[in-house]
Write a protein that binds this DNA or RNA. Sequence first.
DNA 1: TCTTAAACTGTCATTATTGACAATTAATGC
DNA 2: GCATTAATTGTCAATAATGACAGTTTAAGA
Lengths: 197, 197
Amino acid sequence: MVGRPSNRDERYAQVMQALVRCVARFGLEGASLTQIAAEAGLTRPLIRHHLGNREEMIAALQNYVLQSFAEQTEALIAALPEDKPGAALVDFLFSDTAGSSPDMVLAFAALTARASEDADLRAACRESLLGFEAAITAVLRRDYPQVDHPAVDAAAHGIIALYLNVASLAPLNMPQDWTQTAYALARNLLKGLDARS
Amino acid sequence: MVGRPSNRDERYAQVMQALVRCVARFGLEGASLTQIAAEAGLTRPLIRHHLGNREEMIAALQNYVLQSFAEQTEALIAALPEDKPGAALVDFLFSDTAGSSPDMVLAFAALTARASEDADLRAACRESLLGFEAAITAVLRRDYPQVDHPAVDAAAHGIIALYLNVASLAPLNMPQDWTQTAYALARNLLKGLDARS
DNA sequence: TCTTAAACTGTCATTATTGACAATTAATGC
DNA sequence: GCATTAATTGTCAATAATGACAGTTTAAGA
């Protein structure tokens, strides 16, 4: 290979992280190239070089967020232990160790809001969310094989709702007991499944 | 009173509804005065006449959304029946008759996202949400006086999380059974309280 | 009819943001 | 060193949005 080596992939990840963070804070339209550049520690023309024009930028964000969701979900599920995967799953979702997921969820919310204007985006977001729910449901079904499916599905739904709520309200810095109530409630949903087995 | 009669209040409500709708669809920054004017069926300068500059516009939106939340909550609670207020409350929150609440919730979400940049806004949104939760909790406590408080609080928290989830994901047009699962789950939380009394 | 207060409109300078392209620098193989 | 490839920067015109203000119309009361 001749020529300067390409750092495209790493730069792309760096730029996308800055984009996600800016969209989480300022919204899809509020995230200007200058802000993204500042967040990434790069210059504006360089951001544009990697992201293209605004339309391409939003498409890139869509791909990145939805794909990251799918990958992180897959990785998470693969990393669950054998004995009590359901409990471990809930523990992870509500731990602070969940990394940059608040920003990710907020970016997803920004895309969701715009989905009312874009049928393709709407379908993509919906599929992504349903995929997430299906993955969680699959985990719980294997963990609680003797419980009837509707009950397990409902528990998965509730856990996801509580998780999305906590993540998307993260900017409000809700009091500790508020977050802990959500966590306890999620565990209680599992407890309800225990009682049925 | 001399001079042209003031339609300020009605116009203000009309303009604010258009603003809420535009913010719900395009975000805080994405909602341009031109779009708001088109949505309201008015001209741009007239919007500006009523809303002032952008900073004042956001402040007005904040007041409007948070105050509307408080008022609608109060009105809702006052309208609850005597015998089973909790069940009626859940029925209302998850009925399509909930009016324009999706846009309202989405606008609230847009404000929430920006709250990470503005301490005052953060405090206001947090108080608003906690107030909503306190009101729901009060209803449930009166409906289930013999259940211990933590259990009632948890149920209220869960109902609100499910409601906010359904409203903020409304643009995705989730399948019917998805929404119904949330509704059934909320009723199940009440059922759990029944079992404890 | 005349005054008054308010809604409403027209218009323009200013600003922020983008889009695009040329130019430069850096790093690798030959 | 030299050619090559890609990253990186500089710059500027075009566009869109805002802010502001002067001006016009409308509806009431005196």
